[in-house]
């Protein structure tokens, strides 16, 4: 039955109410497209969100959904997934939701490795509250709450994810539909917390924040697609690459004695490399793709394993026996 579903089956009857041109539309479209391919019965899919523009997402998915409170979606999703491991649980969040008000839950869900998929829409601005800087806004950014420019040093979400012990950390771009689809599938297939930072354009308050990456003219030179076991090549003519100079990465042009064999080869299981790649910011090309993916026991799996062990060792609990524990006496 699940195989017969189409993207339309995953669209709810609610009108989508993001601003015209918002990057969220592209992400919604891709998620609805990928869902039928995953083979999960629709009733087993749950989208949980916090607060912010991105967090309206569940209303538009014809699955189970929960639009909760600011920053808490990872905690709510943890309670759900631990008790209902049969469900396919997705968390939709934003840069403010996940990294500011919900920062604590975000890092803890990553370290626990609860089997969830977290989609963090990063537009580097507060949209729903109408344009304040966010924890991912660049320093110096002039916003309503920073008229002289932000003096806050921003988070790099990939580094936060890796630093928190994430077992799957990836980056995608809203309008790069095919690549985004690939990342969604990878995230879904990964056991544990799968974290995708999706660079997303807020056309009202921060338009073009990732213009370099999405503009056809500059895209190829300003982004590099990470692929496991493949050398780090980029550029319109695929003639540039990233090479290590000692411990530091550098951009080189292929030819003149520099070949692909000299380039760094991506290894998704190498945490040090993942950090190094996470640190690549302009003028380096921005990496997209899977930075890091390793297999690690999941929290919900381990909890349910202890559950089984307790049952095997002690048998299913007997309430009567439980009440009588610790010494009883009878009064006649």
């Amino acid at each position: 039955m699940a195989t017969a579903l189409t993207r339309k089956d995953f669209a709810s009857d609610q009108d989508v109410r993001w601003c015209p041109g918002c990057g969220d539309y592209a992400i919604l479209a891709q998620v609805q497209k990928v869902m039928p391919e995953l083979g999960v019965p629709r009733e087993n899919v749950v989208f949980i969100s916090g607060i912010g523009c991105s967090s309206r997402f569940p209303y538009y998915m014809n699955t189970y959904g929960f639009h909760s409170i600011h920053g808490r979606a990872p905690a709510i999703a943890t309670g759900l997934k631990v008790t209902r491991p049969d469900l396919d649980v997705w968390v939709v969040t934003g840069d403010g939701d996940a990294l500011s008000i919900g920062g604590n839950h975000f890092v803890h869900v990553m370290r626990r490795n609860v089997d969830l998929n977290i989609l963090l829409f990063n537009n580097r601005i507060y949209g729903l509250t109408k344009g304040q800087y966010s924890p991912t806004s660049e320093m110096g950014k002039v916003t309503k709450s920073t008229p002289m420019g932000s003096v806050d040093f921003p988070f790099n979400p990939i580094r936060v994810g890796l630093g928190a012990g994430g077992s799957f950390v990836a980056r995608a771009v809203d309008v790069e539909q095919k690549h985004l689809g690939d990342m969604l599938r990878r995230a879904h297939d990964h056991r544990g917390t799968s974290f995708i930072e999706i660079l997303q354009d807020c056309v009202i308050f921060n338009e073009g924040a990732f213009g370099q990456l999405t503009d056809k003219a500059t895209q190829a030179d300003s982004q590099i697609v990470l692929e496991h076991d493949k050398p780090l090549v980029f550029g319109k003519n695929r003639d540039k690459g990233i090479r290590l100079n000692g411990m530091r990465p550098e951009v080189v042009t292929l030819g003149n004695g520099v070949s692909e064999a000299d380039l760094l080869v991506h290894d998704e299981t190498n945490l040090a490399l993942a950090f190094m790649l996470a640190n690549l910011e302009p003028p380096f090309p921005t990496p997209i793709g899977v930075f890091y993916a390793v297999s690690r026991p999941t929290y919900d799996g381990a909890v349910n394993q202890q559950f089984q062990q307790a049952r095997e060792k002690l048998g299913p609990g007997d309430i009567r026996e439980l009440l009588h524990r610790g010494g009883t006496w009878e009064v006649h």
Partner: peptide, 29 residues
């Protein structure tokens, strides 16, 4: 009391404690 089908989640903070419970209630616990 794990063998009585009791899940205990020592959360990262008070907010996660109650929020996780809300999530579990959504799932039928």
């Amino acid at each position: 009391f794990k063998n009585f089908a009791v899940y205990t989640f020592q959360a990262e903070d008070e907010i996660a404690g109650v929020s996780s419970a809300v999530g579990a209630a959504f799932g039928g616990a």
